[in-house]
Amino acid sequence: MPRLSRLSRSVAGKVALVTGAASGMGRATAILFADEGAAVAAVDVNREPVESVAAEIRAAGGNARAWACDVADRAAVEQLIAEVVVQFGGIDILINNAGIAAAVPFEADNYDEVWARTLAVDLTAMTYTIRAALPHLRRSESPRIVNIASTEGLGATPGHSAYTAAKHGVVGLTRSLALEFGKEGITVNCICPGPIRTAMTEAIPEEAKERYARQRTALRRYGLPEEVAHLTLSLAMPAASFVTGVALPVDGGLTIRRA
Rank of each mutant, 00 (worst) to 15 (best):
T174L: 10
A30I: 09
A55E: 15
T124S: 13
A116K: 14
I196E: 07
L173N: 01
W115R: 00
G252M: 05
V43N: 07
N46Q: 15
L94W: 03
V15R: 01
A178H: 06
N96Y: 08
G26K: 02
G155L: 08
A41H: 06
L123N: 13
P2W: 01
L224D: 13
G194K: 12
T164F: 02
Y163C: 09
Y128L: 06
V170C: 06
R74C: 09
L219T: 11
A120F: 05
R214S: 12
H136P: 02
R220K: 15
V71A: 01
R47H: 09
M126S: 13
I31P: 00
A101Y: 10
T124F: 03
N97Q: 11
D122I: 09
A41V: 08
R74M: 03
T164L: 03
V146L: 05
E51R: 14
S150I: 12
I95R: 07
G194S: 11
Y111D: 02
A239S: 15
Q215V: 00
A116E: 15
V77R: 04
T127G: 02
S234T: 13
H230E: 14
H230R: 15
L219S: 01
R197L: 15
Y111L: 08
G153R: 11
A213F: 05
T232N: 10
R144F: 04
G90W: 08
A16Q: 03
T174Q: 09
T198R: 05
I145Y: 08
A162I: 05
S241Q: 12
S5I: 12
T174M: 06
P249H: 11
A165I: 02
A108Q: 02
K209S: 01
A60H: 11
R6Q: 14
A156V: 12
Y128W: 14
R257W: 00
Q87L: 02
E83M: 00
A178C: 05
V85H: 01
L231P: 00
V43L: 10
M200D: 02
I196T: 13
L134R: 14
T255M: 15
I204H: 05
L32C: 04
F33G: 03
I91T: 03
P105T: 06
V114W: 05
T187H: 11
L177I: 10
E210L: 14
S10L: 05
M237A: 14
T244K: 06
G61T: 12
N46F: 06
K183Q: 13
E207R: 13
A98G: 09
T157G: 00
Q79N: 13
V246M: 07
R131V: 04
K167V: 12
R131E: 13
F88K: 04
N96S: 09
H230S: 03
A16H: 01
A66G: 12
R58W: 04
K167L: 08
P143M: 03
A98I: 08
G90N: 05
A120N: 04
R197W: 03
V104W: 00
F242H: 13
K14N: 01
G20L: 08
V228I: 15
A133G: 13
G253F: 07
R175D: 00
G252Y: 08
P193Y: 11
A12R: 14
T19W: 05
A28W: 00
L231S: 13
A39S: 15
A125N: 04
A68Y: 01
S176F: 02
V114G: 04
G26E: 05
T201P: 02
I91N: 00
T217D: 04
V40P: 12
